[in-house]
Write a protein that binds this DNA or RNA. Structure first.
Ligand SMILES: [Mn+2]
Ligand SMILES: [Mn+2]
Ligand SMILES: [Mn+2]
Ligand SMILES: [Mn+2]
Lengths: 224, 224
DNA sequence: ATTATAATTTCGGCATTCCGAATTTTCAAG
DNA sequence: CTTGAAAATTCGGAATGCCGAAATTATAAT
């Protein structure tokens, strides 16, 4: 396919930047294999693309030694993340999608939207602060901040408010919703089994059992 | 790019079907060169793609003798047209775009939308009957009907209602809007110069001069 | 320092979409 | 019937994105 815009970014490249940005938060520099797994392509494919991104000045790439985003790449990554979250919001607020559908649905077409459509969507949605999963809709790099504390890190007796939940596993999200867990909800941990065992908690006014994986997908802020 | 869906249609193919459908209304079978011009690609490229479409059973293709849509291809073309018009409506009604922007903006991302998003958009828009330019939003082949009469075919003294206006030339649309011409508006032809000369008309309560090309881009229905 | 293992890159290849130049086919005129 | 121009197709080739297998590099263990 002939690209309609020469200087601008290929959709695929935006995708790479988004994934690199996310992986970078856990570990920097990001490795080829981590990116490959995240993007679900072969490592050799990633190496190909990395060279192009490097040439465009979007990443610092030292063969065999991983990659980091350049300031320019970081800006574009934030732009892509912002767009993704606005589109998610559109899908839930204006079209009535469930939050577990919104993430994947957004991925389908978000890269094709013009800046103008994004701007107008944001306005039509009343300038939302967060996506349906509780993550901030960023304007700049500093805005992309994730609550460090997860539900699993709480000790029995502690109370916390759910800030955001990982949105990349639809089934997990759906199950979470069935437990009444979503941003804004208050949770009190009652008990926690050792060895990454499940956790007992009161969600709203229901008693729930929450497994390790699920509890670690929930970002919270401790209350008093 | 790896396609996520094997049996389904490539975006490009939908595009071909849409164009073939439109050209077919003027002349059937459609020629390679007509399609090439419409799609703005080289004739050799069209020939390549035609073979693929033919193999998928979407068109009847006899080399050197033009193409027609099969029933299957026709159905998909109508589906694509429907989607386009719903998205245009979304852009004008929900995001406040001008109608001259809506058409091109829609082309950018319409092919990426899932059926479910389309369905929900349609409902959220209150099941509109026509696109912003006055063309029907079709459910089946028969629904795609264009008013045959254009403003230019009227004789002085005749009155008509604007039904739809050609939407593929943004500048023309913008100019049209500045003259107060849009679907639903009533126009009375006052005079018409010979030899494809301009036409004098009363639009609403303003006197306007309308050139041949413009007047032929306006589909009308005669009144009484 | 050597060596094995894992991570990464290189290489050749496949598929798609596009193009221009050369060739083939059609069809209308003579 | 020829024949010549227009239209369409074939052919070779470029760019992109992807992959698996082979080669290379890093690095951790001996
Ligand atoms: Mn998401
Ligand atoms: Mn989200
Ligand atoms: Mn249109
Ligand atoms: Mn329209």
């Amino acid at each position: 396919m002939k690209s309609s815009r020469q200087p601008s970014l290929l959709d695929q490249h935006c995708d790479y930047l988004k994934h690199i940005f996310r992986l970078q938060q856990a570990q920097s520099p990001v490795s080829t294999s981590a990116l490959a797994e995240s993007l679900k392509v072969a490592p050799s494919t990633v190496t190909d693309t990395l060279k192009k991104l490097s040439q465009k000045g979007l990443i610092n790439y030292t063969p065999y030694h991983g990659i980091t985003l350049t300031p320019k790449g970081e800006k574009l990554a934030v732009k892509a993340i912002r767009r993704h979250r606005i589109v998610e919001r559109f899908l839930t607020d204006m079209l009535g999608f469930e939050w577990h559908e919104a993430h994947e649905e957004a991925l389908r077409f978000e890269t094709q939207l013009s800046d103008e459509v994004e701007r107008r969507l944001f306005v039509a949605l009343n300038r939302p602060k967060v996506c349906p999963h509780g993550y901030p809709i960023p304007s700049k790099v500093e805005d992309v901040r994730v609550e460090e504390t997860t539900l699993y890190s709480l000790e029995p007796g502690e109370r916390a408010e759910v800030i955001s939940v990982k949105d990349d596993e639809p089934e997990l999200l759906q199950f979470m919703a069935s437990l009444g867990i979503k941003p804004g909800v208050k949770i009190k941990v009652v008990a926690k089994d050792p060895f990454k065992g499940p956790l007992q908690a009161v969600v709203g006014r229901n008693r729930r059992t929450v497994g390790w994986h699920l509890a670690n997908s929930i970002h919270v802020r401790k209350l008093d």
